[in-house]
């Protein structure tokens, strides 16, 4: 694991992640309590987060701009809820903006910023990891870890919960994240498309709420 991987996984790196709960806020609004949180994080890892990890891994080795743009479209086709596409776009653009501050002369990232209207977070993450010399497994691992970490850190704000306990959930999920990262990076030419209709529905409801803390 490189220092760049640590920087990308660090919530202190300014990429706007603190404003997103990975769907937990709406789950809690629907009545979920502390006990459901680690199960929710694990369920996301096996479904939507694995899909995103496969895209991050692929973006890492996507080559030129057209390769990234194809991944944009492929991931949009797997993200039916507009609020989730928008959340991913915002997070992707934030990371892209920060990464271009690191490498202002990177012509591929510049071109991608100029041409990509979607810029979903996993594709940006993969491209950035690749730019920094990392490989598909690293990109997938960061993507998966960040998904689970978003759930657990949002839980501390949404529920009566010791943050130490939330970090323990992440430790308990570590082996699974490792396995899923390897699997996501090894995905065959067919990218995964596990769907999560309840998350899509919840995202549509969440977007209409006027009292919410999180952007997604």
């Amino acid at each position: 694991m490189s220092v760049l991987d640590l920087i990308l996984a660090d919530a202190r790196t300014p990429t706007g992640g603190y404003a997103h709960s990975a769907g937990l806020e709406q789950l809690v609004a629907g009545g979920a309590g502390v006990a459901e949180v680690p199960r929710f994080a694990a369920a996301r890892l096996r479904t939507v987060a694995s899909v995103e990890a496969a895209f991050a891994a692929r973006a890492c080795v996507a080559g030129d701009l057209s390769g990234l743009m194809t991944l944009d479209s492929e991931l949009a086709a797997r993200t039916p809820a507009p609020p989730l596409r928008e959340a991913s776009r915002r997070l992707g653009q934030a990371l892209l903006r920060t990464a271009l501050g690191w490498w202002p002369d990177d012509s591929r990232l510049q071109a991608y910023r100029e041409h990509s209207a979607l810029s979903p977070r996993p594709v940006v993450l993969g491209a950035v990891v690749g730019r920094g010399g990392g490989g598909p497994v690293e990109a997938a691992r960061i993507s998966l870890y960040e998904d689970a970490a978003s759930v657990c850190s949002a839980a501390v704000k949404l529920l009566p919960l010791d943050s130490g306990r939330a970090s323990r959930w992440l430790v308990m999920l570590a082996d699974e994240i490792e396995d899923l990262a390897v699997r996501a990076a090894a995905a065959s030419s067919q990218l995964p498309s596990t769907s999560t209709p309840l998350l899509d529905r919840d995202a549509l409801i969440h977007a209409t709420q006027t009292r919410r803390l999180f952007a997604s």
Partner: peptide, 9 residues
């Protein structure tokens, strides 16, 4: 202050 990316965007 610490992470202004959402506001800048």
């Amino acid at each position: 202050r610490d992470d202004i990316t959402a506001n800048l965007l």
